[in-house]
Every structure is written in structure tokens, then in C-alpha cells.
């Protein structure tokens, strides 16, 4: 295919824009390009990017998971409860969180795949459920060491150093653990989705489930897998969130869902994929992170942040929908 300017804009528009932004910010504020700052940006977007990657897997299989943000917040509270109230170890907290994530993923899968409830509705119901459940054990209060429990006693546990390190430690003093986790998870899922026959089947189901089934693919199994993967990745995000803030915060999940969905949608526009893809989602999240970090360095007011996110989302959509050839 010849490389027309139009094709160039579709395929590389977002990446060129990202490079341009980095250049502008680097010139305006030299500190922007410091390695430390770049990793701070990645650390800031790691959790949203993880959730976005999870949503992307369900989108690839033709579904949608609205519950990832609620699940991450729920898991974050569960981790804090396990550590502070139950005085559990790092390992038990992590196992509990992953177990809860898989359970929620299976729950979503039963509702959507087994009972045939539309994905948006089923995961919306799950979102409500999780948002309420996370408040139940503590009566709606955030969890920090020394919390007074509902029966009047004081919680004995505390966040272990090992657990906190998951959110705060920097490998070789430079690479934050959440970024490492994101890199591993995203790379693994990207390899599977883009390069293996399993990935092909996920995309085939997203394209036309009936056709995929008639071609012999166990489509229900794959769709179940998609929701379980999405929920597991979201619960990893929740663990990192708890480790990062060092408490169980009832409002920590606010906005996570929309940010993650936005990242996944911006990702459609990366490399002209015009469909959900793992790499694109990560680039989408990083793009928003770079923009917000740069604007903050240039002293833009914080309340421009959502305006920027909205503008980027719409810009990406305009590129994907406006320039790409119409598919009726």
C-alpha cells in the first residue's frame, strides 16, 4: 500500500502527536525529559492502563466490561481489610484479591455467556454490587491502621512493607513496580492477542461470533476466558492501588472506569488498528499521562485535566472515524 498523507495520519497520527507533545514539553520545561519524570508518568498511568488492558480483552471478544473500575476499588478495600483488620500476611492478601477478581470475572461470565444478559447491563449490575459491598465490612469508612471497628475494638494489623513495596518500590531505584507489572501483563496479553491462534479466535469472536462458532471455535469458553482475564487484571490493578495509597480508601475507585475505557478507546486509533488492541490501549493511557504531566509542569490548572482527556478521546475518535475508510 502506498503511504498517502491520509494513511499516514490514520496509522501514525497519535504517535506523531505524542512525539510532538514530548518535544514541546521538553523544550518548554527541560525537567520533563528526566528519566525520573518519565517513570513518574508511567507510574501515574500504570493502574489505569492495566484496567484498560483488561477492558480491551473483553472488547476484542466483542464484549464490554464496565465493572473493572468498581472491581479495582473493591479489591483495594479487600486488600486493606485483609492486612489491617485480619492482620494477614502479604501473600494471603494478594491471594485473596486475585481470588476475588477471578470470582467476579466468573460471575460476569455466567451472567453474560450462560444467561445471555447484555454485557453492558450485567457488568453495570456487578458495578453497583461491588460499589456497595466494598463499604459493608467497615460501615462505609476508609481503612487505615488503627481503624476502630464496628464492634468498637481497634484493628491490630498494618500494611506490611512487602505489600507497600508493590506500589512504591523502584527496581534498581528507577523502575516502579507497577510499571513493571503493567509491562509484563500488557506484553503477555499483547503477544497472545496479536501473535497466537488463541488471539485470532478472540478477534474472530469479536468480529462474528456465529461465524467463529460454525468454524469450530469453542466461543463460549473464549468469552468466559475474556471476562476472567479482564477481572483478574483489574484485581491486580486494585492490589497495586492499595499498595500505592497505603490504605483502603472508599473513594479511590472514582473515575477509574471511565479513564480505563477512554484509554482503550483511544487505543483504537493507534497504528490504524481501528479495533481494540492491547498495545494501543497502553499508548492511549501513556498519551493522556504525558499530556497531563506536561500541562501540570507548565502550571496549567488541574481542572483542565478532564477537558484534556475529553479532547484527546474525541480527537482519537475523529481520526479513527473521520479519516478511516467508511465501513458502511
Amino acid at each position: 500500500m502506498t503511504l498517502s498523507p491520509r494513511r499516514l495520519a490514520i496509522d501514525y497520527g497519535l504517535l506523531i502527536l505524542l512525539a510532538g507533545l514530548v518535544a514541546v514539553f521538553a523544550v518548554a520545561e527541560p525537567a520533563f525529559l528526566r528519566v525520573n519524570n518519565l517513570f513518574s508518568i508511567l507510574q501515574a498511568v500504570a493502574i489505569v492502563a492495566l484496567l484498560g488492558v483488561g477492558v480491551t480483552v473483553t472488547m476484542i471478544a466483542g464484549g464490554f466490561d464496565l465493572s473493572v473500575g468498581g472491581l479495582a476499588a473493591f479489591v483495594q478495600m479487600a486488600a486493606a481489610y485483609s492486612l489491617v483488620v485480619l492482620d494477614g500476611s502479604t501473600g494471603s492478601a494478594i491471594l485473596l484479591c486475585l481470588g476475588l477478581g477471578i470470582l467476579v470475572g466468573l460471575g460476569n461470565a455466567v451472567l453474560i455467556v450462560r444467561l445471555g444478559i447484555p454485557d453492558l447491563l450485567a457488568t453495570l449490575g456487578m458495578l453497583f454490587l461491588l460499589a456497595g459491598l466494598q463499604l459493608v465490612p467497615t460501615g462505609g469508612r476508609s481503612i487505615a491502621p488503627g481503624l476502630i471497628l464496628l464492634d468498637g475494638s481497634t484493628a491490630q494489623g498494618t500494611f506490611t512493607d512487602g505489600f507497600l513495596a508493590l506500589g512504591r518500590h523502584r527496581v534498581w531505584d528507577i523502575l516502579p513496580v507497577p510499571v513493571l507489572v503493567l509491562a509484563v501483563v500488557a506484553a503477555a496479553l499483547w503477544l497472545v492477542m496479536a501473535w497466537t491462534r488463541f488471539g485470532r479466535v478472540f478477534y474472530a469472536i469479536g468480529g462474528n461470533e456465529l461465524a467463529a462458532r460454525l468454524a469450530g471455535a469453542p466461543t463460549r469458553l473464549y468469552r468466559v476466558a475474556a471476562y476472567v482475564i479482564s477481572a483478574t487484571v483489574a484485581s491486580i490493578g486494585g492490589i497495586l492501588l492499595a499498595a500505592r495509597i497505603g490504605r483502603g480508601d472508599v473513594s479511590a475507585g472514582n473515575g477509574l472506569m471511565l479513564d480505563a475505557v477512554a484509554a482503550a478507546l483511544i487505543g483504537h486509533a493507534v497504528l490504524g488498528a481501528n479495533r481494540p488492541n492491547i498495545l494501543g490501549t497502553v499508548v492511549g493511557a501513556v498519551f493522556v499521562g504525558v499530556l497531563l504531566n506536561g500541562l501540570t509542569m507548565l502550571n496549567a490548572p488541574y481542572y483542565l485535566q478532564d477537558l484534556v482527556k475529553g479532547a484527546v478521546l474525541i480527537g482519537a475518535l475523529a481520526v479513527t472515524y473521520g479519516l478511516a475508510p467508511r465501513r458502511a
Binding site: L115, A122, L130, L135, V136, G140
Partner: peptide, 21 residues
């Protein structure tokens, strides 16, 4: 409490949907 109300709403939505589907 308000959080049990939220749980209740979630369960209600899911129950209604399960019944329907």
C-alpha cells in the same frame, strides 16, 4: 445503610435480568 441499599440495587438489577433472560 446506604451501602446495603447499593448492594440491594445491584442484586435487584441482576435478579431482574436473570429472570428475564
Amino acid at each position: 445503610n446506604f451501602y446495603w441499599q447499593q448492594v440491594g440495587t445491584g442484586v435487584l438489577i441482576l435478579l431482574t435480568l436473570i429472570l428475564a433472560f
